[in-house]
Amino acid sequence: MDRVEAAAEYLFELRDHRRRVAALPPEIAPRTLAEGYAVQDVLVQKLMDRFGSRPIGYKIACTSPLAQQALAVDAPFFGVMLTHSSHPSPAIRPGAEFTVRCAEAEFGFEMAADVPGGVAYTAESVKPFVGAVLPSLEIVDHRYHDWKTVDAASLLADNAIHGAWVFGEPVRDGWRDLDLAAHATALIVNGTTVLPGSGAAVLGNPLNVVAWLANELPKFGRKLSKGDRITTGLTTAVYLAEPGDRLEADFGALGRVALTLSGD
Rank of each mutant, 00 (worst) to 15 (best):
L134W: 05
D141Q: 00
R143V: 13
K148I: 05
Y144L: 07
V115N: 12
H145P: 00
V115M: 09
Y121D: 10
F129M: 04
G118S: 10
H142P: 02
T122F: 01
Y121G: 11
D114H: 12
G131L: 01
Y121H: 07
P135S: 07
T122P: 05
A120N: 12
Y144G: 10
V119S: 08
V126Q: 01
G131R: 00
V140I: 15
P116N: 12
R143T: 13
V115E: 07
V115K: 11
D114W: 06
P128S: 08
A132P: 07
D114S: 11
V133L: 02
K127I: 10
L134M: 13
W147K: 03
L137N: 10
E124R: 14
W147I: 15
E138K: 05
G131K: 00
S125L: 01
D114P: 08
S125I: 00
E138T: 03
P135W: 01
E124I: 02
Y144D: 06
R143L: 04
A132Y: 05
P135T: 10
V119H: 15
G131T: 02
T149I: 00
A120G: 05
D146S: 13
P128I: 08
T122C: 11
H145G: 00
T149S: 14
E124V: 06
S136P: 05
L137I: 06
V119Y: 09
E138G: 11
P135N: 10
G118R: 01
Y144S: 04
K148T: 15
F129T: 04
I139E: 08
K127E: 15
A123L: 01
P128E: 07
H142Q: 12
G118M: 02
V126I: 15
I139M: 14
L137D: 10
E138P: 11
P116I: 09
D114I: 08
L134T: 08
T122N: 07
V126T: 04
A120Q: 15
E124Y: 00
S136M: 10
R143W: 05
A123E: 11
P135V: 03
E124C: 07
L134G: 02
L134F: 03
G118E: 06
P116G: 14
L137A: 06
W147E: 14
K127A: 15
G117F: 09
A120E: 15
P128H: 00
D114L: 11
V119F: 14
E138F: 00
E124S: 14
E124Q: 15
K148G: 06
P128Y: 03
D141K: 02
A123V: 02
V140L: 15
K148N: 14
Y144E: 08
A132L: 00
Y144K: 03
V130T: 13
V115I: 08
P116W: 09
H145T: 15
A132H: 01
K148L: 04
Y121I: 05
P116M: 07
A123K: 09
V130N: 07
S136H: 01
